[in-house]
Amino acid sequence: MAGEAARGATAYVTLEPCSHTGQTPPCTQALISAGIARVVAPINDNDDRVSGRGFDQLRAAGIEVSTGLMAQEALLDHAGFFLRNSQERPWVTLKLAMTLDGRIATATGESKWITGAPSRKKVHALRATHDAVMVGAGTARADDPALTVRGFGAHRQPVRVIASRLLDVPLMSQLAQTARDVPVWLCHGPDARPELRTAWDGLGATLLPCQINAGRLDPSSVLQALGAKGITRVFCEGGGQLAASLLSQDLVDELHVFTAGVGLGAEGHPGIGALGVDHLVEAPRFQLKSVSSCGEDIHHVWRRSDQG
Rank of each mutant, 00 (worst) to 15 (best):
G3N: 06
A6P: 01
A9P: 01
Y12S: 03
S19L: 03
Q23Y: 08
C27Y: 08
Q29K: 09
A37D: 07
V39H: 04
V40F: 03
N44V: 05
N46L: 15
V50D: 15
R53M: 06
G62Q: 10
E64H: 07
T67I: 09
E73K: 08
D77S: 13
H78K: 13
A79F: 13
R84H: 09
S86M: 12
S86H: 11
Q87Y: 13
T93R: 15
L96H: 00
L100V: 06
R103Q: 11
T106S: 14
E110Q: 14
E110K: 13
K112E: 12
W113M: 07
T115A: 11
G116F: 06
A117W: 11
S119Y: 05
R120L: 08
R120T: 00
T129L: 13
H130Y: 00
V133F: 00
V133L: 02
P145W: 03
G151T: 03
P158Q: 05
V161R: 04
L171D: 13
T178H: 11
V182C: 03
P183M: 04
C187R: 06
P190A: 14
D191Q: 15
A192S: 11
A192Y: 09
A192E: 11
A199Q: 10
L203A: 11
T206Y: 02
I212M: 11
N213E: 14
P219V: 02
S220M: 13
L226V: 08
I231Y: 04
R233C: 11
F235V: 03
C236Q: 06
S245W: 13
Q249I: 01
V257T: 12
V262Q: 14
A266L: 13
E267T: 12
A274P: 09
D278T: 14
H279Q: 14
E282S: 08
E282K: 02
F286Q: 04
C294Q: 14
H299M: 02
G308K: 09
